[in-house]
C-alpha cells in the first residue's frame, strides 16, 4: 500500500495552504500555490500503483495476456497537471513582477486598493 505516498501528498497540500494563508510576501503565496499543485500530482500518480507491476511500455514481441503493469491513465493525468501547474506559476510570477513595478512593495497587506 502506498500509505507513505498518500500521507506525503496530503502533507504537501496542507503546507501549501498554510503558506497561502499565513505568508505576507506574494512570492511566498505563489510558492504555496506550487506546493499544492505538486502535492496533488503526487496523489494522482500514487492512485494508479499496482503492487508488483512493471512500467506500461512494451514492444511487439513481449505482449502476452499475463502481463501485469501499473495503470497508465493516472500518469497521463499527472503530465497534464504538471503542465497546468507550470503555466499557473508562470502567470502568477509575471503578475508579481508587474505588481512590484506598480506598488513598490511585495507585501500582501499593502496591496489592497480594492476593498470594501
Amino acid at each position: 500500500m502506498m500509505l507513505a505516498n498518500y500521507i506525503g501528498a496530503v502533507a504537501l497540500v496542507v503546507i501549501g495552504f498554510y503558506a497561502m494563508v499565513m505568508k505576507r510576501d506574494i512570492i511566498k503565496i505563489v510558492v504555496g500555490m506550487g506546493l499544492v499543485d505538486y502535492g496533488l500530482n503526487l496523489m494522482i500518480v500514487s492512485v494508479g500503483f499496482n503492487e508488483g507491476g512493471t512500467a506500461p511500455i512494451y514492444t511487439f514481441g513481449e505482449l502476452t495476456s499475463g502481463m501485469y503493469f501499473v495503470d497508465p491513465i493516472p500518469q497521463a493525468l499527472t503530465l497534464t497537471s504538471i503542465v497546468i501547474g507550470a503555466c499557473v506559476t508562470a502567470m502568477a510570477l509575471a503578475l508579481c513582477v508587474r505588481l512590484y513595478k506598480e506598488y513598490g512593495t511585495l507585501d500582501a497587506h499593502e496591496i489592497r486598493r480594492l476593498h470594501g
Partner: peptide, 27 residues
C-alpha cells in the same frame, strides 16, 4: 493587476479541489 492576482490565487483553490475530487473518483 491586483485584481488579477487575487483572482488567480483564490481561483486556484477551486481548481485544486476539482482535481483532487477527480483523482479520488478515478481511484
Amino acid at each position: 493587476r491586483e485584481a488579477a492576482f487575487k483572482y488567480l490565487v483564490v481561483g486556484s483553490i477551486g481548481s485544486s479541489c476539482v482535481l483532487l475530487g477527480t483523482a479520488l473518483v478515478y481511484a
